[in-house]
Nucleic acid binder design. Structure first.
Lengths: 203, 203
DNA sequence: ATTCTAAACGGACTGCGGTCCGCTTAATAT
DNA sequence: ATATTAAGCGGACCGCAGTCCGTTTAGAAT
C-alpha cells in the first residue's frame, strides 16, 4: 500500500473500481513485471505489454496514463517502503539520530535503492521534467532533506540547498556512475558522506 | 569555431566537405535557427526542419545524427565562447583568481548560460544518458571543477565531488527551478555561492 | 570531354508513445 | 427480468525520431 499516490480502488470519496477493471489491472501488472524480468525495463514497450496482458492498448494507457506512469506504479511498493523507513523507521535513517547522521544514512539508502530499482526509476522519470522534479515522492525527499538541513542549523535557503543535494542523489546520475563508469557503490556513499559532512560542519 | 567538437569541414586528416553538402549545412542551420526563433525549441521537429530547408529527411540525420546532435550544433558557438571564458578569460572566471572565487564565478556564468540557452541545452541532452553525461563539453566542465577542487585542497575523491557539483548546475534542473518555480537567478547564484563556500571552508 | 566512384541525397518505411471514438458491459435502479 | 448509463474497452490512427536503400552528383582521374 503506497503512502503518496492513492491507488485506484482506494475509496477516497471515489467509488470502487469495476470488477473487470480490477482484473485487467492485475493482469497488466503481472505481465509488466514478467516482461521487465524477461527483457529488462528499457526493452518493454506498451504494445508488448498490451499484447501480453491480452488487453487493448487504450486500456493500458487508461490505467497508467503513460509509460512513466506504468514504471511509477511498478515502483510504488518499493517507494512506499523507502518512505516508511526514513519517516518512521529506526535511526539513523529514521527519527532519533542527529541530522547529519540521518542525512548520511539517507544517501546510503538512496544508493542501495538505485542499485536495485535504478532502471525502473530512470524510466519513471523519462520524458517529463514536470514528473521528474515534482512527482510526489521527489517532493517528499526534498522536504525531508530540507528539514534535516534546518535541524542542523543551516538557515540559508535550505530549500534550494536540498534541491542541490537531491540532484546528487538523482537516480539517472547515480546509475550512470555505477554502470557506465564502474564506480563502486561504497565510493558513491563515501563521497556523499564527505559532501554532507563538510556542508554541515559548524552550523 | 568550437573547441571540442571538430566541425565537419575542418580538415583534420579528413578531406574537405563537398560543396553541395556545405550549402545544405548552411541552409539547415539557418532554417533551424529561424524555426527555433519562430516556434521555440520544443516545437521544432526534424520533418519541419527538412521541409523548411528544402532538403530530404535523410540529409538532416546524416548531418546531425539526431535531434540532440542538431541542438548541440546550434549551441556550439555559445558553448565554445563559454569554454574560452573559463579557460583563458579574465579572472575571476578565468585563471588568476583563487579557486573558491573561480568556482563561484563558474556557477554564476553557468546560470546566465542556462537563462539564455537553457531550452537548447535541455533539448541537446534529451533521450540519451550517454550524451547527457559524457558529451565532451560536460566532461570538460567536470574536469574544470575537479581541478578547482584540487587547487583548493580538497583531495578526497574530487572527481565524484565535481560530479555532484555538476549535478547542481545541470541545465534541466536549473531551468526547472527558474521557470516552473519562479526562482530568481540571483537566488540560484546565492545558493551556489553558499554551497561551494561551505564546501571549501578550511581545507 | 568522358568515365568513374564515393559521398551525398531523398523520401518511403519502421517502431514507438500516445490519442480518439464508437462499441461493450458491469453495476444499479425499477 | 429489464432498462439505463457511465465506466471501461479496443484497436485504428497520429506524429515523431530515426533507418534504409535505390538514385543522383560532385569532383578526381584519364
Amino acid at each position: 500500500m503506497s503512502l503518496i499516490p492513492i491507488r485506484p480502488g482506494s475509496p477516497f470519496g471515489t467509488q470502487p473500481e469495476r470488477s473487470d477493471a480490477a482484473r485487467n489491472r492485475e493482469r497488466l501488472l503481472q505481465a509488466a513485471r514478467d516482461l521487465v524480468a524477461e527483457h529488462g525495463v528499457d526493452a518493454v514497450t506498451m504494445d508488448m505489454l498490451a499484447c501480453r496482458a491480452d488487453v487493448g492498448k487504450g486500456t493500458v494507457f487508461r490505467r497508467f496514463g503513460s509509460r512513466a506512469g506504468l514504471m511509477m506504479t511498478l515502483l510504488s511498493d518499493a517507494e512506499a517502503e523507502f518512505q516508511r523507513e526514513f519517516i518512521f523507521g529506526p535511526p539513523p535513517l529514521g527519527p532519533g539520530a542527529p541530522p547529519l547522521e540521518r542525512l548520511i544514512a539517507f544517501g546510503e539508502a538512496r544508493i542501495k535503492y538505485v542499485e536495485e530499482y535504478g532502471e525502473l526509476a530512470r524510466a519513471a522519470a523519462e520524458h517529463s521534467p514536470q514528473n521528474r522534479h515534482d512527482a510526489p515522492p521527489v517532493v517528499l525527499w526534498h522536504r525531508h532533506i530540507e528539514m534535516l538541513l534546518r535541524e542542523a542549523g543551516l538557515d540559508r535557503d535550505p530549500w534550494l540547498l536540498a534541491l542541490s543535494l537531491g540532484a546528487t542523489l538523482d537516480p539517472e546520475r547515480m546509475l550512470h556512475s555505477l554502470r557506465a563508469h564502474g564506480v563502486a557503490p561504497e565510493r558513491l556513499a563515501a563521497s556523499w558522506r564527505e559532501l554532507v559532512t563538510r556542508l554541515l560542519k559548524d552550523c
